[in-house]
Each structure stands twice: as structure tokens, then as C-alpha cells.
């Protein structure tokens, strides 16, 4: 394979352990200039991937946190009519009331398009908004441009951003949208991979502690009837707390004495199930 110098290649960062399969997909998404759509259980590092790519490639990251009530145009730009109305009445600002452009503010996608440098654009949890939102974004992401209707101006992306889109729920996005994306589903890491992830976050952690924690963690994930299983994020937080506790001893974990269950299980019912499991062990 011919390597071109101007093509960025993503190799992972110190704290983000990159699965080789995912690495290929990220690089293909950059090379094919297609957005990368990531799905997977919450807490498997979908959002973190975008941060890691930005850090690794030294590009600024623009995050669009999608909200349920969001319209596509909100992500592109905003026309601040109220300020303009206010200025026209009181006229005490430096803005020029007759120039609408003074009242146009760029949304997150607008910012990514107008940035001087190439950016990584993260569209987080796109499934939160309704399907109109996705359909409206389609053309924008396809053409890499959008119109500001109020001033009849077209904003074109100066540099094509690297686009990462995450979706939490397993609900499918619309077909045309999927057609334009590269898709990957991040499976929950297996214990070996998890060990690497833990080591990346806690370089000084002892083998025995890491092993005991991971073993206990996977056993807890297998408790039947739990609605929200603890994920990587919970494990990392849990280990952080265990390490701060002066009384913590990995031996106890092995014996089934598991402290700080509340860090791992956040629904009251799940917490009860976990407690029951621990007291039986």
C-alpha cells in the first residue's frame, strides 16, 4: 500500500486502546471521506474515540451533542432575531441592524465547516433527535455545504471534517442516512482487551489488583435480570475509587467481598440484585 504523507492515519492514543479492527475502519472512513457511524452498548468508548482521533491527529474537536428537540438548522446556524429586534429598538450595540449577517451565529456543524483547520466533528447520540433531523443533515454532510436562507449565502466546508457519529439505542437510523456512512458496532470488550484498557488508564496498577477487579467485574456483569449492566466507564471509575481506599485489598475481592457497588450499578433495582448476588457469594 502506498502511504501518502498528507493522509492522516489514526493509530490510537495513550489512554484509548484501539482495537485493530476499529483502527482499520477509522482509517477507511478518513480515506473514503465518509462519516463513521458507531453503535454499541453505552460505555464502550464510542464518544471517546472521537476525542482520541482528534488528539492523535492533532486536530481540533467540535462536539455536537444532539438533543431530542433539536432541529438540523440549529446545528448549522442560528439567526438571532430577538437580539436584532432589540438592537433595532434601542440601537446601542456595535452591530449593524440592517446587516442580517451580524446576527447569524454558527452552530457546531457551521463551526466545523468554517474552521481554518481540518477538524474532527463528533455528532453525539444522533438517535436522540427525530428522523427529520437525520434526513436534513444528509444533504449537508453529502454536499459539505449548507445555505443560510436569511442572507442567501452558501457556507462550504473549507476543510472536510472527519465525522464521527454515535448512536446509543439499537433503533435503526434511516436507510439513506446509513447508506452514506461507514458502520461499526463496538462489541463489549473481552477480558483481555479490558486488561489493556485498564492498564492504559492505570499504568501503575498491580497485576493482581487489575486481574481481581476485572474478574469480579465480569462476574457482576453476568448477574441475571440486571437492566443496565456496568460498562467500561463504570469499571474505570470503580477501580479509581478502589485504589483510593486505603483499606482495599484485592484478596477481599476474590473472596466475594465487593465494595462500592453503587459505582457499578446505578439503578436501584440493579443495585439490589447486585447486593443479593454479593451476599450469596
Amino acid at each position: 500500500m502506498e502511504t501518502k504523507i498528507d493522509k492522516p492515519v489514526f493509530t490510537g492514543t495513550d489512554t484509548y486502546v484501539l482495537d485493530p479492527e476499529l483502527a482499520k475502519i477509522v482509517n477507511a472512513s478518513i480515506a473514503l471521506e465518509m462519516p463513521l457511524l458507531l453503535k454499541g452498548e453505552p460505555g464502550t468508548g464510542k464518544t471517546l474515540l472521537a476525542y482520541a482521533i482528534a488528539e492523535d491527529l492533532g486536530m481540533p474537536l467540535v462536539v455536537l451533542n444532539v438533543k431530542s428537540s433539536m432541529k438540523a438548522v440549529d446545528a448549522l446556524y442560528q439567526y438571532d432575531t430577538l437580539t436584532r429586534l432589540n438592537d433595532s429598538r434601542f440601537g446601542d450595540s456595535k452591530r449593524d441592524v440592517s446587516n442580517i449577517e451580524d446576527y447569524i451565529k454558527m452552530g457546531k456543524i457551521g463551526q466545523a465547516f468554517t474552521s481554518d483547520r481540518r477538524t474532527v466533528l463528533l455528532i453525539d447520540e444522533i438517535d436522540k433527535a427525530d428522523s427529520d433531523f437525520q434526513d436534513d443533515l444528509l444533504d449537508v454532510l453529502d454536499q459539505m455545504s449548507f445555505d443560510i436562507i436569511e442572507i442567501d449565502k452558501t457556507i462550504k466546508a473549507r476543510h472536510r471534517p472527519i465525522i464521527i457519529i454515535t448512536s446509543n439505542s439499537k433503533k435503526d437510523l434511516s436507510d439513506p442516512f446509513l447508506g452514506r456512512c461507514i458502520f461499526h458496532h463496538i462489541a463489549f470488550p473481552d477480558p483481555d482487551m479490558m486488561r489493556k484498557i485498564v492498564n492504559a488508564h492505570f499504568p501503575d496498577i498491580g497485576e493482581d489488583i487489575a486481574g481481581a477487579c476485572i474478574k469480579a467485574f465480569y462476574a457482576l456483569r453476568d448477574i441475571k435480570g440486571v437492566e443496565k449492566k456496568p460498562a467500561t466507564r463504570e469499571l474505570i471509575n470503580w477501580i479509581r475509587i478502589l485504589l483510593m481506599d486505603p483499606d482495599f485489598d484485592p484478596e477481599h475481592l476474590m473472596k466475594g467481598d465487593i465494595p462500592y457497588l453503587g459505582v457499578l450499578f446505578k439503578k436501584s433495582n440493579d443495585y439490589r440484585l447486585a447486593q443479593k448476588y454479593v451476599s450469596q457469594a
Binding site: M1, E21, K24, I25, N27, A28, S29, A31, L32, M34, L37, D172, D175, L178, G179, C181, I182, F183, H184
Partner: peptide, 19 residues
């Protein structure tokens, strides 16, 4: 981008299979 069967497996899936 595809130089091995492994690459083919991963990338063909990423671009063609959307769920």
C-alpha cells in the same frame, strides 16, 4: 485500503452492512 483478507472482512462489513 484492502490488502489482505482481514482488511476485506472488516472493511466490506463496515461499508456494506449497516446494522
Amino acid at each position: 485500503l484492502i490488502t489482505s483478507l482481514d482488511d476485506l472482512y472488516t472493511l466490506a462489513r463496515a461499508v456494506m452492512i449497516k446494522s
